[in-house]
Every structure is written in structure tokens, then in C-alpha cells.
Design a protein around this nucleic acid. Structure first.
Lengths: 238, 238
DNA sequence: CATTAACTGGAGTACTGCCTCCGGATCGCT
DNA sequence: AGCGATCCGGAGGCAGTACTCCAGTTAATG
């Protein structure tokens, strides 16, 4: 790349259009999920389709740009949860916040349940958040309130399930989603039951997220998935 | 319709092709879910696409014909579970069986999570099965092993979630699905936690299933799938 | 074996979404 | 205002899927 791939600032009209596209994208993704038609986004931004592609060469660029803030909220939620003293309250508060964010935005619902290569800034946010989540989990386990055979894959499974519920239940989303989350938390908090069957490996879940991403038109299927466990804490503590 | 819309028997080659199409459909649906391409089914049956459409005018006709037997297993599973004496074992056995059927057949995974058939024969099966399920639930509740605020919508939520997991996790499906089901059952069996948030209404869930069906290309949004038992040998006809 | 109704397959239409090309409009600077 | 660099938008190519039409083939029957 050239030394100054820090390209000169966009022309005024270009900036205006870019913002319009992002606003439209946030709307449309929230309504229809990440598989929304790019043409619809361009139309809602009152912009030609070419303009959209010029600014965001691929769907995941657009997704990335449209969701930076929301992903930041994810990090914030993790951090905020850390401030809660009771380990179980902290953990459940985080999980509930995540799933509520999903329920309010179908795009985010998709995003949290898949892996998307995005920009560096977002990656850093994720990494930090992930570390916080691991802490939340460890604390809750240590307090004997989170089942000891819990793994981060379980959280991912919940996020995927919740994403679907949100997608499918449309206007009934809040009730169904809250119900699902409450059930999941009750399950996570059981310490008196026999061990769960073995969880899928994090590699398997990475592949799964890749499939999801592919299905939503973001990233090629089978392409090297960032094993970082992506958006969500998918690290398998031993 | 004319009195004898009981059309004359198909010609030998037509019957052969019809069977080939059904066999191919079962394969392809199992692999890819209900949204599989009809052209692929025709190709696998080594039949022209027109032949498929002649025999099954719409996707839901094909789906219906391909899955009658599998849906019957749903009823059988409920009945078999009733024979188990321990109420909790009976309930969990039924749930597990359902979800395992889903894990083994992505088409069925879709089908069980959308809406049940309206064909009268199958409708009867469904009604009976549903009654059995209600019995299973009541028994388990009475025994104090199933949480008292459990409702049938919770089961549906699980089926939808499981369908997605099965869809997404591909080869890791068994592990992920079993894990999800085990967690759900642990949640269902909690009697020591505060009441869950209110469930979605069954009307809301019906709408949700309609959306799912529409997304899979079966039936208009909101209308149910009609299983065609028409010219299938009716086993255990009674 | 001849006749005919039933059946067939593939080409064709229609639609949708992704993505690119390029003539023309617009901006920003002098 | 004039001018070049930048940017725009819609037409159009490509691909995948649903679904239809029709000229040719094949099974059943006497």
C-alpha cells in the first residue's frame, strides 16, 4: 500500500452520502437482519447502488461500519457488569443486556451470533470485552452460582438461539426472547444436576458462525474464520 | 371438484418418477433444510424440473408428501413416552426424541419448528399427539419435577432454537444440539427459581411459525402447510 | 403393432439480488 | 467563472431460483 493510504478527506457530498448510507443501513439491518438487500439500503439512503459499493466495497465493510457503536455497547455492557459486586448478578446482568440488545436490533442479533472480520478498532473492543466476560464467568463459577461445567460455547449457543427467536417472533420478540433468556439463566445456575453432555469445541462453533455469516452474505463459507471467537467470548477455558 | 377427483392411477413411469422425486426430496431436505432448491431435487431424482412441478404443484405439496412418515413419528414419540412410568423420564424422553429427530434431519428440524399440517388425517394425529404432550406436561408438573410455570410455548421455543442450532452447526450438530437440550431440560426442571417472565401467547407463536414457513418458501405468510397423504399407502389405517 | 392419452425434459420467462462500467454531474480551488 | 479531480447514478451483465410451455417420447390397450 502507498505510504499515504490515509486518503485525503472525502468531498462534502461524498461524506454526506456516506452518512446517509450508514443511517439507512442501521435502519434496514435492524429491521431485516444482516441479510437485508443492499439495494434497499441504497434506496432508503436516496443514493445510487454504485455509491454504496464505492464507499463500502463489500457487505461486511458496511456491516462493520454500521455496527461499531453497537459493538461498543457490548464492551460497555461487559465492563458495567464487572462493576456489580455479586458475581451472579453481574453475570446475569451481562447476559440479559446482550440479549436485549439483540432483541432490539435484528442486525445485531445476527452479528453477535457470527464471526465477522472487521476493523482493528472493533477487534480491540472485542478482545477487551471478551476478557471481561471470562472474568465474569470465572467469578460466578468461583462463587458456586454458575454451574462448573459451563463453557463460553454455551453463551454462544444462547446468542444464536436468541437471534433466531428475535428473527422469527417479530413483534412478539421481547416476550419470547426474555422467556428464553430466563430459562437459559436458570439452566446456567443449576449446580445440582449431572454433568451436561460435552459441548461442541470452539473450532466447531467457529465453523458454525462461519456458516451463519456465509448464509447472511457476509464472508465466504469455508474461508479462514478468525478463531478469536470473534464477537463474543468464545474461548474455551480448559 | 368432480366426484372422482380420485384420479386414475398414474402410469408406471410416472409412479416411478414420483417415488424417485420423493426419495431425492427426503435426501436433499435432510441435508439442506426445507429451503433447498427444487432444481437440485429434480436433478438428484434424474428427472426434469417440469416433472417435479407436475407431480407436486408447490413446494409445500412436496414437503408434505416427503415428511408424512416423519411427522407420524412425532405422534409415536409422544405415545411411546406416555408408556414410561416416571413422569419426568417420560417428559424428558419425549423432548429428547423430538430434538434428536431434528438433529438428524434438517428438513424435519425446519418442519417441527414452523407449523403443523392441516390435512385431516395428519391433523388427527397431531391433535392426539398434542393431547399426549399436554398429559406428559401435566404429569411432570404434578410430580413436582417440571416447573409449574412451564407452558407449551416453551417447548416450541426450544424446537425453534434447536432447529437453528442444527442448521448452523452442521457436523457439530449432535454435540451442540444435545448440549442445548440438556440445558433446556435443566431449566424446565427447576422449581426453586422465581417465576419466569410471561411467555409469548400462542397466537404470537403461530404468527412466528408462519414467518418461518414463509422464509423457507412454504406457503404464504401465515398460512399453514398442508400435508398430502393423498395417494400414499396409509399404514396402520384404522 | 398401431393408436392415443399420458408423460417427459429442457428451453424459456420472470424475478431478485450482487456487483461493475462509464457518461455525465458536482465540488472545490483558483 | 473556469477547470480538473472527484463523485454520482442507473443501465446492464451475471447468477440463482421459481415456475410454464410445448414438441417429442413412451406406456397401456385392443
Amino acid at each position: 500500500m502507498r505510504a499515504h493510504d490515509q486518503q485525503r478527506p472525502l468531498r462534502a457530498d461524498a461524506t454526506r452520502n456516506r452518512d446517509a448510507i450508514l443511517a439507512a443501513a442501521r435502519e434496514v439491518f435492524a429491521e431485516h437482519g444482516l441479510e437485508a438487500s443492499l439495494e434497499e439500503i441504497a434506496a432508503r439512503a436516496r443514493v445510487g447502488i454504485a455509491t454504496l459499493y464505492r464507499r463500502f466495497p463489500s457487505r461486511q465493510h458496511l456491516v462493520g461500519a454500521a455496527f461499531v457503536e453497537k459493538v461498543a455497547k457490548y464492551a460497555e455492557a461487559a465492563e458495567a457488569a464487572l462493576a456489580i459486586t455479586d458475581p451472579w448478578d453481574a453475570f446475569t446482568s451481562f447476559v440479559r443486556t446482550m440479549c436485549e440488545l439483540q432483541a432490539g436490533d435484528r442486525g445485531l442479533a445476527d452479528l453477535l451470533s457470527m464471526t465477522l472480520p472487521t476493523d482493528e478498532h472493533v477487534e480491540r473492543l472485542r478482545a477487551v470485552a471478551h476478557a471481561h466476560v471470562v472474568t465474569l464467568i470465572d467469578r460466578a463459577k468461583a462463587a458456586g452460582q454458575l454451574r462448573s461445567d459451563f463453557v463460553t460455547e454455551d453463551l454462544l449457543i444462547l446468542l444464536i438461539a436468541n437471534a433466531t427467536i428475535v428473527h422469527v417472533t417479530q413483534n412478539a420478540a421481547p416476550a419470547a426472547s426474555r422467556r428464553l433468556v430466563a430459562l437459559a439463566l436458570d439452566a446456567f445456575g443449576r449446580t445440582d444436576t449431572p454433568a451436561l453432555p460435552p459441548p461442541p469445541t470452539s473450532a466447531e462453533m467457529a465453523v458454525a458462525m462461519g456458516h451463519l455469516a456465509a448464509k447472511r452474505g457476509c464472508g465466504a463459507d469455508g474461508e479462514a474464520i478468525r478463531l478469536d471467537t470473534g464477537n463474543l467470548p468464545v474461548r474455551n477455558s480448559g
